[in-house]
């Protein structure tokens, strides 16, 4: 009786392997470890980007795992290695603790790509990293602001949560201008991404009657809060207004504000990395070598910045986040 059961079990196991073997023939197996889409509008766009690129039509058999916790991400990555994926794509919750898992992947012959966030480890452990240079975002925005050649720059600077990557990247370039004296800091205050708080900060400047002509808000929500304060005080803003309004993230609703001429500029930290990674995987599959990496094996995403005077409906559809 026991023997029969054993034979039956072995048969079942063999049978269950057949579809897997078939699938492995034509599709490239990819495991994606990412942060959950509920984290932010950025992440939602990022998650959707990967789902839309790594499809069966494009020749992939992709599995996705989302968690904001590093340890859960680590065990998911281990599971993907056990499942025998061909490529492992990781946007890590934390930069540390990944060495062991990446070594396991290397020994198993799995190609690892990092996206959006770097990991502190030997660059030998991954094929390439597609990341944003946060400072570049701020540089692009400030360069655009300088290109306006305003007679003077009196800037209200509304910061995000202090110490976050986005805040550091978006603040740096502007701080340089304040130090160089090319722009005057009217106020620099954190609203910790809170729209209502941004409105209060701008209100307090308006009440102090200090002159200002630029609002540099580190995300769209805070820019909207700032504009609400301007509207209540009867101050004009946007393309033909007295105050230049700048935001970041490129939510669709924010780009529509640009299109209507209410705001002047919106910068974006590109959430679209899937196509770049897919291209690199195809190169590797074809036996080629990945080109264009820097010493840290990174590819820096090109950051977008939109000027209200040049924005088109098409841009909104292509680059806008959310609905």
């Amino acid at each position: 009786m026991k023997k029969i059961i054993a034979v039956a079990l072995v048969l079942v196991m063999c049978l269950s392997l057949i579809p897997a073997a078939f699938a492995a023939d034509d599709l490239i197996k990819v495991g994606v470890v990412n942060n959950p889409p509920s984290e932010s509008g950025y992440r939602e766009a990022n998650v959707n980007d990967f789902i839309s690129v790594f499809t069966e039509e494009n020749g992939y058999d992709a599995s996705f795992f989302y968690s904001i916790k590093n340890d859960e991400q680590l065990s998911a990555a281990r599971q993907f290695i056990t499942d025998g994926v061909d490529y492992l794509l990781i946007s890590a919750a934390e930069t540390t603790g990944w060495d062991a898992v990446l070594k396991d992947a290397q020994e198993a012959g799995i190609g690892v790509f990092l996206f959006d966030r770097m990991i502190d480890c030997d660059p030998e452990l991954f094929e390439a990293a597609v990341v944003s240079d946060m400072a570049q975002e701020g540089d692009t925005a400030v360069a655009w602001l300088l290109s306006l050649e305003l007679p003077e720059y009196n800037v209200i600077h509304i910061q995000g949560a202090m110490g976050s990557d986005a805040q550091l990247g978006r603040t740096g370039a502007l701080d340089e201008q304040f130090e160089a004296g090319t722009m005057t800091k009217v106020v620099q205050q954190t609203a910790t991404w809170d729209e209502a708080e941004a409105k209060k900060i701008v209100e307090s400047v308006i009440n102090s009657k200090e002159p200002f002509n630029v609002i540099y808000a580190e995300n769209d929500g805070m820019a909207k809060g700032a504009v609400a304060a301007l509207d209540e005080a009867g101050i004009t803003h946007g393309v033909d207004g007295d105050v230049v309004v700048m935001g970041f993230d490129c939510n669709k609703w924010a780009l529509r504000e640009l299109l209507a001429g209410n705001w002047n500029y919106d910068g974006q930290c590109s959430p679209f990395q899937a196509q770049v990674i897919s291209d690199m995987i195809q190169t590797l599959e074809a036996g080629g070598e990945i080109e264009g990496l820097n010493e840290a094996k990174q590819i820096i995403s090109v950051e977008k910045g939109f000027d209200a005077r040049e924005l088109t409906e098409e841009d909104i559809a292509t680059y806008g986040l959310g609905e």
Binding site: K200, S204, N207, D231, G234, I235, T236
Partner: peptide, 30 residues
């Protein structure tokens, strides 16, 4: 610090309506 801190004035907002404005209003409103 600033004797005019609590001064309340009336301005016209971007919709063309007269509205109260000042730190006191910001505090009460916020």
């Amino acid at each position: 610090r600033d004797p005019s801190f609590f001064s309340v004035g009336i301005t016209t907002n971007n919709n063309g309506d007269p509205v109260l404005q000042g730190n006191l209003i910001s505090i009460l409103n916020g």
